[in-house]
Structure formats: C-alpha cells, structure tokens
Design a protein around this nucleic acid. Structure first.
Lengths: 173, 173
DNA sequence: AAGATTAGTGATTCATCAATCAGTCAACCT
DNA sequence: AGGTTGACTGATTGATGAATCACTAATCTT
C-alpha cells in the first residue's frame, strides 16, 4: 500500500518535472501531452490518471515553481543578517534561476495566460513573495521598505528576461 | 494603382492590428488564423496573401510594437529637460501600457518563445530601447547611468506584469 | 492459488488548424 | 464590349492533439 503510494507519487512528480521541461522549452500551448509523456517515460493517456486536464498539470507545475522560490526565500529571511538580507535574497534568486531556469520560464509564460485559475496561481505566488520580502525588509529596518521591495521584484523580473533572451547586457551596471 | 496600394496597405495593417489583439487575448500558439481573419473582417486564407506564415505575422506585429515604444521614447528624449527625463520616460511608457496594452502583452509572450527569428526581434527591441535610454541618461548627466538604465527597464518589466495580472500592489511604493 | 485491486497501454475519437487550390467577382483599360 | 488584372473567398487537405475507452499485466491480499 505505502509502496504503491510511493510509486504513484513518483510517477506524479515525474510527470510534473517532465511537464515543466517540455512546457518551458516548447511553450505551454504548443507543447503536447504526448511530449510530456515521452519525457516522463510513460504513455500519453496515463497522464490523465493524475491530472484531469492539461491545464491542471500546468497549475500543479506552477505551484511547484512558486514553492521553490518561497521556500528558498524563507530560509534566507530566517537566517540572514539585516545588512546581508537583500544581497542574500538576490543570490538565492540567481541560484534558482541557474538551477531551475525552466520553472522561471514557465512562470514567465503564465504571466500572460488569461485563464482565471492560472492567473490566481500567479497572483498568489507574487503576493506571497512580495509579503515575505516586504516584511523582512521592514524587520531589518531598511528604509523605504515598500520601494525597495518593488525594486527588488523589478530587478528579478528583468533578470528573468535577461536570462530568457540570453542578453546579459540587460543586467549590466 | 496608388488606390490599390492604399487598400492593400490598409488590409495589411488591419490584419496586423487584429493579430495583436487576438494573439494578446488568446495567446499566440492557441490563437488561430481564423480568429485573426474574423477580427480583421477578411477570410482566413487571405491572411496568407500578406504573410507567408503565422509566424511571419507575429514577427511583423512585434516590430510594430517595438516601433511604438522606440518612437515614443525618441520624442521624449529629444524634448525633455534633463531633470524631467526619467519622469517623462516613465510617463510615456505608462501611456503606452494604457493605450496599447495588447502590444505589451504580445511582447511579454514573445520573451519566452524560442524561435530564432522571434528572439532576434526581441533582442533588437530591447537593445535599441536600452541604448536610447542609456545615451539619454548620460547626456542628461545622470550619475550611475548604467544602473539607472537597468532599474528603469526593470521597473518597466514589473509594470507590465502588474498590468497583466491586474495586481496594482506590485507597483506600490 | 484464486480473486481483487492497481499500474499501465494501444487504439480510437472528434475536433481543430495552418496552409493550398481553384475559382468568383469587380474595376479598370482600350 | 471584351479582355486583363488584382482583390478576395469557399472548399479542402493533411496533420495533429486532448481526452476516452477498452483492455492487459502486475502486484497485493487472504
């Protein structure tokens, strides 16, 4: 029983990982469930045992990607010194961008998808990240915490684009 | 003859305008050429008299959208006082975001499309905008012109997301 | 070992779409 | 009037993709 649950959970996370890759590489709408299945080494119909629709799979993939960022930022916030806080957050995000580029690319795609459920997931992710950063900046006594939070997020978004388009000069200072 | 050219040019720009709307609303890959045709009030096959492929139409739409921004910024740069320069550029971009949201949404989509021709169009647009802003900041004697340019672009990108997701709080200071 | 539950797939369905083709219709020329 | 050109469309094609169905194989239970 627990063995089955484990195997099943592995299959599910295999599918999610495959979906993140394929969606990021090909574009969510152009990507096919057959491509995801091939990457996950299962048959195409089997995806629908775990996700009722392609969109449900996208939603789960987005949740994974937001959890990645939020967990990483939480660790920084809990341990960083006030002086190092912003630098450490930036470093943490750069680390994510290096290691999980596909998750970020998927989020970038989802920013322009108008389905309510997708939008809600994106709003929730941004809201939580912003809240965490803002609270941490305030707790660290950073002046103009609101503006600094906005600029931190803004920098991150430009960083995404710089990475997606392979234009490092966009981040030059 | 010139009458025909005019009619033909109108048709072409009708198609481009329709494509910007439909692609922005529905997503480029999900949008169909039939939807674009309906919006432009022509038949679906007629699109292919003007654009050899759907992708060629996207490329032209992207060029239009970049030209919009570049022309607008150029006017600001040519006329604004050094003290007002950044403020005026921000205002100009907000104006574009209000009036031509769909063009911006289309650019956001194109940021994650991996086709070479699309990427090249996006790189060219970003490069030109960055160059113009950087040169103007330098000419205005703004210190740390490189960093200020980066932050200006970053703010703009967050502004896009804030508008796309209907999250004004992302831009709060 | 037999029965029952779970893991997994092949084949199919029905819908959809970019692109092509073959043709109509109207305007203009002479 | 008749012929030529350019604007424009209906019908079609060939491919593709999400989702369903009807199965088989494997594992677990007792």
């Amino acid at each position: 029983m627990s063995k089955n649950e484990t195997r099943s959970a592995n299959r599910k996370s295999d599918i999610i990982s495959a979906a993140i890759e394929v969606f990021a590489e090909t574009g969510y709408f152009r990507a096919t469930t057959a491509q995801v299945a091939e990457r996950a080494k299962i048959s195409q119909p089997y995806i629908f045992r775990f996700f009722s629709t392609k969109e449900a799979l996208l939603l789960t993939a987005l949740e994974v990607s937001w959890t990645r960022i939020i967990d990483s930022f939480r660790k920084v916030v809990e341990s960083a010194s006030p002086e190092q806080l912003e630098t450490d957050l930036i470093r943490a995000y750069e680390e994510i961008l290096n290691t999980y580029q596909n998750e970020v690319l998927l989020q970038m795609q989802a920013q322009t998808i108008r389905e309510d459920s997708i939008r809600e997931a994106m709003r929730g992710g941004f809201r939580e990240v912003r809240r965490m950063v803002l609270d941490a900046f305030r707790a660290a006594g950073i002046p103009n915490a609101e503006e600094r939070t906005m600029l931190f997020l803004a920098r991150g978004m430009l960083c995404n684009i710089s990475a997606a388009l392979l234009m490092p000069e966009l981040m030059e200072t």
